[in-house]
Structures are given as C-alpha cells and as structure tokens.
Design a protein around this nucleic acid. Structure first.
Lengths: 217, 217
DNA sequence: TAGGTGCATTTTGTATACACGTAGCAAAAA
DNA sequence: TTTTTGCTACGTGTATACAAAATGCACCTA
C-alpha cells in the first residue's frame, strides 16, 4: 500500500495537467479561448513536451479540444452539453447512493452526516466558499461509499467539468436553500440505509441543479 | 459544414493512440505487461514524442497505467475492476435505454431492429466474429439513440475497456443463447417504446454479462 | 553464502531544434 | 471594388539530443 510518507515526486506533465486543469476550472483560461502554448509554458516554466502531454490528458478528460495543426481551445460547454452531463451525473449518483446504502459502514455514514452538519453551519453564516468546497467533498465522499472505483472516476470527471457552472449556479439565495434541503433529504435516507430513496434524492438533486444553473450558462 | 470528402489528416499521436489501443484490446499487448517504448516506436515507425502523447491519452482512458520514471504497463483488470465497470455500464445503459425510448425516431428504432435481425442470422449460423462485431455496434447505436453525447462517451470508454473480456465471455454456447434472449427482450421493449422495461432489460443484460464472464478473468 | 554497496547500462523524462501546415495579409487581376 | 493567388510569419507537429532516474550486475564485506 502506498501511504503517507511516500515522496510523491509526480512527473512534470502531471503537475502541469493539474495546474492547467485548475486554471480552466477557475476560469482564468476562458471557455472557447485558444490555449496559448508559448505563453503558458513561459509562465509555468516548463518546456513544450510535458505541456503537450498534459494537454492530451486534459483533452481525454474533455476539458480541452485539440484541433490538429490548429492548436487547442478550452472546451466551451453549450447548454445541451451541460444538460447531458447532468443527466448522466444524476444517474451515476443515483447508483452511488443505492450502493452506498448497501456497502458503507456505520462509521462512514456518521462521518458524512458530520460533514453535512458542518455544511449547515456554513449555510447559516452564509459562507459560500467553504460551503461550496464541502459540497464538492460531500458528493465525492458519498460516491466513495459506493466502493466502486469506476463510478468514482466518472463522477470525479463530471464533477470537475461542471465545477465552474455549479459554482455560478448557486448564486441566488433561494437556490442555495433548495440545495441544502436536497442534501438534508439525502442524509436522512442514507442514515436509514434506504437505497431506493437515497438514489431518488440524489437524482432529484442533480435534476434540480439543472434548474438552478440553466440560466447562467 | 464539414462533411464527407474532407481529408481527416489526423495527427500522428491520434493514429498512434488508436493503433496501440487496438493492440491492447486485441491482446497483442498483454495485460500487466510493460510497454516497451523503444520497441513499439521502432515497430510503428514514429518517434517518442507522439508515442508518449498517445500513452497519456490511453492512460486517461484507463487502458494503461504510467508510473513516473518506471514506465507504463497495460492495465490489468482484476475481477473487482470488471465487476465495478459492469455495474456502472449496466446503469449507464439502463439510462440509455430509457432515453432512447423517449427520443429515438421510428426510423432509428427500425434500423436497430434490422441490426438485431442480422445478429440473429449470424447466431443461427454460429458465426461468432461477425455476431460479436454487430453486438458492439448494437450497444453503441442504442446508446446513440439517447441523444446524450456524454453518455455515449462514457459508454464507449467502458465498452473499449471491457472489449476483450466480453469477447472471451461469450465462448460457451449456453451463454451466447442467453445473450441473444436478452437482446430479443431489449428490441421488443424498444419497439414498444417502453422505457422502463428497456432500461431494466439492459441493466439485466449487463448483470448477466457478469455471470457469463466472471470465470474467465 | 547472504546481504549490501557502487558502478554501468538501460530506460525514462525533459528540452530544444527543425520541418511542416495554417492563416493572414498584400498585391494583382477581373 | 471585389476576388483570387501567392508570399510570409507564426504556431503546431515531430524528431532528436541531452539529463536524470532506475534497474541489474558484479564485487566486496560480514
């Protein structure tokens, strides 16, 4: 097992991929804009080879599009794209919910409930950023409880691609309240280990997400 | 519009990625074995740069694993991996089935039924290879009918990663018969546009697939 | 003989140079 | 004035060279 004190020593292209991924998610690199290879390698202080390898990774993840001989652009999501992705994400999280109820330990469920409580604290004080961060973690952790590696990979991928949009989506207070309610229902179902209900709740939560974000794309 | 007679002019790394992907799927490169960079670039007649970019793509697809400074290996699937992937694939195809019933045109449904009939012909004459190829196409086409791009991407990805195993799985005649029955049920449900039933049938089909392949991993 | 250390070889990782394709602009012709 | 054609500059694609890390082997020591 590869734990704690191992020196990560990640390869350059991995680091570059992570860095550029963040730049895209944070919106520093705007959707639809060309990726200035020369400019970025200058700024990151790396050469073209690892940078281009990183680009290929991001392309496979669906964050950028490489057009042969025409350079790369940050993928711009159409409303249709977002809808399609949410449709799939909703279904995946439904599965995750069902599996979690069947496979999670009591301890794991308690930990997630804890996390939810901390989210509520942030909600009460209206601290959007910490709430948002915990929210990402909530969904990730719940998916982990499915104990299905592939499911986690795909959930992570979709979550990353939708990150920006979901952040924008929860701007309006009434939307935020709705999201919190959804989560409440999810935690109740999980505690009761009611797989069907949790699955429904998660699918519904994602469906609601569409309503919350559709106007801000 | 970029139609028919455009010269594809795909970049080298794309071609390499496709080629190596096939080599892995066909089993020429055995699961768990190291990928001999020097040897392969020799054989493919390309240099290291495009080859390594291709590797990064395949890594993102989950077909190979790159260990920093230690080279790449063809990912070997454990039974747990396969089970997890089928669990997800089943759920995705369930969604695909439901959406297809809602969104496909009559013509598209008829075409798929046609494809199914051709599969039956191959089944009757026990032509495994052409049956197998049509089978892949059947699932791809049905997923297309969902009109959900993301869903198609993910289905394609999982299908590619499982390709070998599913081919091995249908060796035994009684298994093959079972798979044909599953398909029969799917086509009936699709024709009736009974989304729930088609979804169930597809999920069941994938679940059955696990029984068919689990002993040959 | 077993275990460890250091060196040599092989393999991987990164940088850079060169070649090719694309796009934009200017000049000429209609 | 508009369209077409050729040239140029820029950016991308590929190859290769160099650097760093890892593996394997021989030799030394306990």
């Amino acid at each position: 097992m590869n734990t704690s004190l191992a020196i990560t020593n990640r390869s350059l292209h991995d680091q570059v991929a992570n860095r550029v991924r963040d730049l895209i998610i944070e919106g520093v690199l705007e959707p639809g804009s060309r990726i200035d290879e020369a400019g970025l390698i200058e700024e990151l202080g790396v050469s073209r080879t690892p940078f281009r390898e990183a680009l290929r990774t991001l392309a496979a993840e669906g964050l950028v599009i490489v057009r042969p001989s025409k350079g790369s652009v940050v993928r711009k999501l159409t409303p249709e794209d977002v809808f399609a992705m949410l449709e799939v994400l909703g279904h995946l999280e439904q599965l995750a919910g069902e599996l979690a109820c069947a496979r999670a330990t009591d301890r794991e469920i308690a930990e997630l409930a804890d996390l939810h409580d901390r989210m509520l604290d942030h909600y009460r004080t209206r601290d959007r950023m910490p709430y948002y961060k915990l929210n990402q973690e909530f969904h990730s952790r719940l998916t982990e409880l499915s104990k299905n590696e592939t499911l986690q990979d795909m959930q992570r991928n979709l979550q990353a691609r939708l990150k920006r949009i979901r952040y924008i989506g929860n701007q309006r207070p009434e939307y935020w309240a709705g999201a919190v309610e959804d989560h409440e229902a999810m935690v109740v179902a999980l505690k009761a280990r009611d797989g069907k209900r949790l699955g429904q709740a998660m699918a519904q939560h994602i469906a609601n997400t569409w309503d919350r974000v559709k106007d801000s794309i």
